[in-house]
Structure formats: C-alpha cells, structure tokens
Design a protein around this nucleic acid. Structure first.
Lengths: 147, 147
DNA sequence: AAATAATATGTCGCAAGCGATATAAATAAA
DNA sequence: TTTATTTATATCGCTTGCGACATATTATTT
C-alpha cells in the first residue's frame, strides 16, 4: 500500500456511508411492521410535519432529486398512503396529500425513534456525543448542499 | 405535528443518510475521471491495501452482502479492473485479484482524498471535529455491526 | 405578442443495496 | 462413512439514487 490516504480507515466518507446503511438496517424491522421502507418513512415524516406540499418541497427537505422522489411517491400512492394532484394555481406543481391511511401511520411510527435509541443504549455513546455528531453532520450537509 | 420525535431534524439517521449521499456526490467528478463509481472505488481501496483476497473478505471490509458485492465485482471484471477465480485450496472461495489496469488506478486515485479535503476547507469544520465525527461513526458502526 | 428563459415534474437506463432463496463445497456430527 | 451443518458464493426481484434528457407550464425579455 503505497498511499496511506487511500486506506479505508483514513476516509471520512466510508464511515458515513457504512453507518447510514447500518442504521437503516436497524429501522427495517420496525418499518416492516408498517409496511414501508426507510425513504418512504422520511417522506412521510415530511408530510406529517406539513401536509399538502409540492413534490419540489419534498425533494428539498430530503435533499433528493425528482427522478428519485417521483417514483417513490408513485409507489406510496399505489399503497394508498398519499394522493398526487396537479395544483390549480400552478399547473406545473403536483400537490402531495396524506390519505387517512397515511395519517394513521403517524401514531405507530411515533414509537420508532424511542426504539432506535433503546437499540443504541449499549453502544456507550453519550447523549452529548450524539448531539455533537448530528451537529457535525449538519455542518457538512449545509455546506455541501448550498455549495 | 403531534410527535416531535418524528421531526426530520430530530433524527440521527437522516443526517447520516443525507451526508452520505452528499459526500458521495463530491467524489463523483473525481471518480468519473477514473471511470469508476464510489462502491467500486472503496472495493479497489480494499484491494490496493491487500490484493488476492476472497469475495467474503471484501464483503466484511465494506460491510456489504454478497448479493451486492458479487454483481459489483462482476462489473469491475467486465471493466478489466480485476479478475475472479475459484480458489484451488477451497473451491467455495473466489479469489479477487487486481489487473494491471486496476493497480494502475491507485496512482490517480491517490490525489482524490486531498481534493476532497480541499473541497471541505471552507466548511468551518476543524480537523478535530472531523476526527471526532469519524470516531463517533465508528463507535456506531462497530456496535451495530457486531450486534 | 412572440421569443426566451426559468421552473416543476417526469421518463429512461443503469448501478447499488438487500431480503429471500439456491447451490456447491468443506466441516462436523452421528 | 453417511448425514447434517456450516461456509462461500451466487441469482432473482424489488426499491433506491442519479445522470441525461423530455415535456409542459409560468415568468421574463425583447
């Protein structure tokens, strides 16, 4: 190995990438009970926070492109979680709205964050470490997102 | 919004997930010059560190499953970056070996980490923050991976 | 008003990622 | 030495994620 900077352990990207997948795996059994995937879960979180928003607002919040979000929303529509309807005031926009089924999921989903934290309880991570971790990640996200 | 714990900003998973995608996007232009993707890049990093290893060793290092790694390696074989060959001593194993082309890429790739750090220079992240971030992530990774 | 640019959403093709499952070889147990 | 179990790799089907590109609507310019 001629280049130490190419060691996996010296990279910042790899631990972020690996942690992301491992944490998503932790969500999976809980999300399975709701019959949704992780991207569907965070899309629902956006809608639970503010209903009847455009596709574009969702892509902004999730930092995803329309070519990812549109098919995602279509699958959610097929599952009966949301409706998609062209805006009357601006025909370019599509307004996404929660159905009763989509709204009802919020109550069940509300228990998931607590379960996740319990799952991390034995990891020796302090609350302060987790807060600091989140702040560092948002610093990177905000910087790269507005670049 | 009846449940604050369901706010996107209160989650630990979302910033990890978003940061992972944004950082990978930063790599993309540099990796494009080498004609490889990010997962191919980290697979090569493993091989540059130790050549002629089994598929299983690669899945362990990358924390991925064989159903992800096998197709990844097949694409890399098609590109002439590696060879895949059944082990003589244990016919279950497939040994992955860098080709000259795969080895040659290391020199070009060696410049990428520096470029990435330069790209983050204006983010106001200190070196200590980055080190602390990496440590926290590995704490989560090690915990979840060995769970 | 006509032409141009910007905005919003969408399709297509491809590479990941992974659950479920299959197959073959090596190892352990009977 | 059969039989059962473990290990290693692979296939299939599905959802993501994204670059390249297409289409329609709105806003701006000429």
């Amino acid at each position: 190995m001629a280049h130490d900077q190419l060691k996996l352990s010296n990279q910042i990207c790899f631990p972020v990438y690996a942690a992301s997948r491992l944490i998503t795996r932790e969500y999976q059994p809980h999300l399975d009970e709701l019959g949704i995937t992780y991207p569907q879960y965070i899309a629902l979180m956006v809608l639970w926070e503010k209903d009847e928003i455009s596709v574009n607002e969702i892509t902004q919040k999730l930092i995803l492109n329309t070519n990812t979000v549109t098919p995602l929303l279509k699958r959610m529509e097929l599952q009966g979680l949301i409706t998609r309807q062209r805006s009357n005031t601006d025909e370019r926009k599509v307004i996404v709205k929660l159905t009763q089924k989509g709204k009802a999921l919020e109550e069940k989903a509300a228990e998931i964050p607590q379960k996740l934290i319990e799952g991390l309880a034995d990891s020796n991570m302090t609350v302060n470490e987790l807060i600091s971790l989140k702040e560092s990640l948002y610093q990177i996200i905000n910087f790269l997102h507005n670049k």
